[in-house]
Amino acid sequence: MTRKTLIALAAAAICMGAPVPASAQAEPPPGLDRLHAYCQARGHLNSVATDPKSVWSWRCVGHRGELHRIDMHDACKWHTNGRYSKAAYHDANNAFSWYCY
């Protein structure tokens, strides 16, 4: 099926309340699910959300336990190989709601 056909079928299914096949759904923006690897690439041990109820609580953990601020825009660039360079969040009260665009 062509992309136009899939989009048309998805639109019809939405209007009729039917489930939309996964292949016709838009791909969501990537999340920041590799912050440990990002921090390690910068010479740190891993990452931690010091408060799971705050998007601003993410830090890289250094080798002596020190905490380093994470630039989420830079993390998005690294995470997506430059494809997305901006970071945003869905909910300021949820440290795990970051995504890249």
Rank of each mutant, 00 (worst) to 15 (best):
G62C: 05
G65H: 11
A88M: 09
E27D: 12
L32T: 11
H90I: 08
A37L: 10
K4L: 11
Q25L: 11
R59I: 03
A37P: 06
I14D: 00
S23M: 09
P52Q: 08
R42G: 15
C15H: 02
L9T: 04
Y99T: 04
P21M: 09
H68K: 09
V20N: 04
H36G: 03
A24T: 03
N94I: 02
R42E: 13
R64S: 14
C60H: 09
D33Q: 04
D33E: 07
A22N: 07
G17A: 03
P30R: 03
Y101K: 08
A10L: 02
I70L: 06
E27V: 07
P28S: 07
C100F: 08
F96R: 13
G62L: 03
H68G: 01
M1V: 11
G31M: 07
A75R: 10
L35T: 06
W98Y: 11
N93C: 02
L6D: 12
T50A: 12
K77F: 09
G65Y: 12
H68F: 13
G31W: 06
H36F: 08
A22I: 06
M16P: 00
H90N: 12
A13Q: 01
M72Y: 12
K86W: 13
A8H: 10
A49V: 07
A18M: 12
V61S: 02
A12Y: 01
D74C: 01
L9K: 04
Y38I: 03
Y99L: 03
H63F: 09
S47P: 01
I7F: 10
P30H: 03
C100T: 10
I70Q: 05
G43L: 04
A8E: 15
Y99H: 13
P29L: 02
H36P: 11
G43K: 08
A87D: 14
A37E: 15
T5V: 11
G65V: 10
D71P: 08
